[in-house]
């Protein structure tokens, strides 16, 4: 049982980071970023190239993943989303754009990196063994890194100036603008930050599960699940959603093993029931 909980916590930390990026983008721009999973994959491949292929140290690769994705995210916001949001009559049009970007990134990743499953050497060897729990050290390291990053993100949003501006933007775009917040600038920073988080998780996870060009879509779906559980556009909700999903997956895979591959079916069914009772998720604003 301890093993299951440890696995769940480790998975949850990763998931929470992915969900944080998605929910940040959603809160700031009201955009459902279909391409989030693809951003994650791109981050994974950047780390794979720099750490796995070029042989540079892992932290360098991780930073490069984050930076690349931040630039990509900022460019996507500035040149694509901003234009479409300004021109279209209905807000939902951004979804077509987001889906098209997801296709685009999918094809770019496929062309650049091929369709093979890619892995990198372990960051640290060895396995932590105690009476109840067996965990490889690299998993522990990745989990701890993820938790640290979540903490840093929360502190950044809570106490820094850009963080405050973004929270104001999420609360009320017009009011924030009236108070002198540079809406365009902080939308771009927010999008870049969200994309960066996705890229960093991709870089972290490539050391454990590897990466291939096809997993973008499923990752996006998982991110949507977490955001729905916690409530869209709320930082706390995304973290809670990530840990809950990670825990459910870990428990489900153990408990439901003899029934075959039904873990996600059960999770989906539970989610439907949960959402019919609480449409806004755990902490969502009573908006949707």
């Amino acid at each position: 049982m301890e093993q299951v909980i440890a696995n769940g916590l480790y998975l949850g930390a990763q998931y929470a980071l992915i969900a944080l990026g998605l929910t940040l983008i959603f809160a700031l721009m009201n955009v459902l970023n279909f391409a989030h999973g693809q951003l994650y994959v791109l981050g994974g491949f950047v780390t794979y190239t720099i750490y796995g292929q070029l042989g540079l140290p892992f932290p360098v690769a991780l930073v490069c993943s984050g930076l690349t994705l931040a630039v990509v995210g900022a460019a996507i916001e500035k040149y694509l989303f901003r234009t479409v949001i300004r021109r279209s009559v209905r807000e939902e049009s951004t979804m077509l754009l987001a889906a098209a970007i997801a296709f685009f990134l999918d094809s770019v990743i496929l062309l650049l990196f091929g369709e093979k499953q890619r892995g990198v050497p372990k960051i640290i060897d060895g396995v932590f063994i105690s009476d109840a729990v067996i965990l490889p050290y690299d998993r522990i390291l990745v989990g701890v890194l993820a938790v640290l990053m979540i903490a840093a993100f929360v502190l950044f949003m809570q106490y820094s100036k850009p963080g405050r501006a973004m929270r104001a933007l999420a609360q009320d775009r017009i009011a924030a603008q009236l108070m002198g917040v540079n809406v365009n600038r902080y939308s771009m920073i927010g999008f870049a930050l969200g994309a960066m988080l996705a890229g960093v998780v991709g870089g972290l996870l490539v050391t454990i599960t590897g990466v291939n060009s096809g997993i973008g879509g499923p990752i996006s779906i998982k991110a949507f699940l977490m955001v729905m559980i916690g409530g869209a556009g709320v930082v706390g909700g995304a973290i809670a959603g990530g840990f809950i999903l990670g825990m459910m997956e870990s428990v489900g895979l153990t408990v439901l093993r003899e029934f075959g591959d039904v873990t996600y079916l059960v999770i989906f069914a539970l989610l439907m029931v949960f959402l019919s009772i609480r449409p806004n998720g755990l902490m969502g604003k009573p908006w949707g």
């Binding site: 694509l80 279209s88 009559v89 209905r90 754009l97 296709f103 999918d106 094809s107 770019v108 062309l111």
Partner: peptide, 18 residues
Amino acid sequence: QLLIFSSVLIALMLVLPN
């Protein structure tokens, strides 16, 4: 195929978002 297709989609979206 997918690269061109998605680029055209993005371009269409920028020009004719409605």
